[in-house]
Amino acid sequence: MPTPDYEPARGSTTVVSGRWLRYEPVPGFHRFYEGYLATVTGWWNGAVEFTLDRQAVTALAQTFTAMADHVGGDWRTVDFDGHTLTVTRPVSLGGGVHRAAPDDGGRYRIGWGLPWRPVDPTRCDRIFGRP
């Protein structure tokens, strides 16, 4: 798995995931339930910012919804209606709503200040999206 200082170049394709999708099937070996095939657009506060296609955005939104159902409504912060991705920040984090429509290439800009990380694709159970 890449080290935390692994920073793929802007414009490159990588698989990204978050710690909240990580699990440890055996001590010391980490896997991710999901990864998303992304195009890197830059870095902000040490976290990668990237674009995803519609398939990956759909999977990402479904994952956040499933997590909300499992751990509580505070996770219900991401919604996707098939065209617009809506991210709602909880009041405890300053509140606000961010809406993202696809760019001319049909890709959605992701980052949101969350600690997304480039990960080794062989450590993902499922990978969504296309470059």
Rank of each mutant, 00 (worst) to 15 (best):
A68M: 08
P27K: 15
R89E: 06
D53W: 03
A66R: 15
A61T: 07
A38L: 08
D103S: 10
Y108D: 01
L93Y: 07
Y36A: 09
G111C: 02
F50V: 10
D81R: 09
A59K: 09
V26F: 10
P121S: 01
R99C: 10
G73Y: 08
P121A: 03
T63K: 06
V78W: 13
M1W: 04
G73F: 08
P102R: 07
R10Q: 12
S92F: 14
P8E: 10
I127D: 01
L52F: 08
Q55W: 03
R89A: 11
D104A: 14
T122P: 00
F32K: 00
P4H: 13
T14S: 15
W44H: 14
V87L: 12
T14A: 15
A66W: 13
R117Y: 09
P8L: 14
A101Q: 10
A56N: 00
A68Q: 07
R54G: 02
V87P: 04
A9C: 05
H98T: 15
G35S: 00
P131L: 08
V78G: 02
D125M: 11
V91F: 07
T13H: 12
R22D: 07
T51R: 10
P2M: 10
E34H: 12
R107I: 02
T13Y: 11
R126C: 03
Y33H: 13
F80W: 06
D125Y: 12
D69V: 11
G129Y: 04
A100M: 12
G46T: 00
Y23V: 08
V26E: 15
G129D: 02
P131S: 13
V78T: 09
V48L: 06
A100D: 05
T13V: 14
L21T: 05
D104S: 15
D125K: 07
P4W: 14
T13D: 08
G105V: 01
L93C: 06
R107S: 03
T41C: 07
W116Q: 00
L85D: 11
L114Y: 09
P102N: 05
C124V: 01
L85N: 10
R126L: 10
R130D: 06
L52I: 04
L85K: 09
S92W: 15
R130L: 09
D53V: 01
W75C: 09
T41M: 03
Y33W: 11
L52W: 11
D74Y: 15
